[in-house]
Amino acid sequence: MKSINYKIEIYGLKKKFGDKVVFDGLDLKIIEGETFVLIGQSGVGKSVLLKHITGLIFPDEGEIYIDGEEIHSVSENRHLEIQNEIGMLFQGGALFDSFTVGQNLLFALDHMRPELDDKEKEIRILTSLEMVDLAGIEDVMPSELSGGMMKRVALARAIVSEPALVLFDEPTTGLDPIMTANINELIASVKKNLKTTFIVVTHDISSARCVADRIGMLYNGKMIFTGSKRDLDKSDNAYLQQFIDGSTHGPILTEYKDAIKKMKEKLR
């Protein structure tokens, strides 16, 4: 029987911001080479989980392993080496607005792949921009780009160093349906070319179905579902079904209303 290689393993992750519990003993395993889509409501902690994986936020408790190494207990240098193998696409793109598109990509290469010479860097920049259908816009400033173009440049910056793990934080939020489909197709085609592990965070269920190998749902600080697209439809989990259907009737809204009620009572 073929053994499964896990790219990421998370055990007993706990995190609180003030009184708000974000993760309450979260466990998750991401298989090497897969596209794992993390779904859940806004504010449930999906982006926070990505920031834990990149090391931007430290957990209160729990362990996060990347390729078998616990990332928060390694030395600073080793942590930088691990980080060099992670590319991230941020929700708003997070392109450096004082740099041109080309300089944004070059900046990533200068710091993540300093061993490359100028010629190799130039080739990588051109290839990455071609992958996102934006060849020839190296000299354009980010402020001149549309929302969709900005996300595509951010995707190019995330993959320009050819990392072993790429994280996508809400790649289609704020885009029109056509551009959403375009970005989804792009993620799938980039995946075909790079064959690396992708983690995509979204609350758009159609995007999730389009790009995912496996899907997980985060709710109340824990993973309440992980499985394939087929498992998603077969699941009888009431929370998951309410989220997929986008229904206003179900346990999520009931608990949400209860939470608001408690908050109001506390304020009184």
Partner: peptide, 12 residues
């Protein structure tokens, strides 16, 4: 705009 977080993820 998360550019500071982006710096960290680019090993800066």
């Amino acid at each position: 705009t998360e550019q500071i977080d982006a710096l960290s993820t680019l090993s800066v």
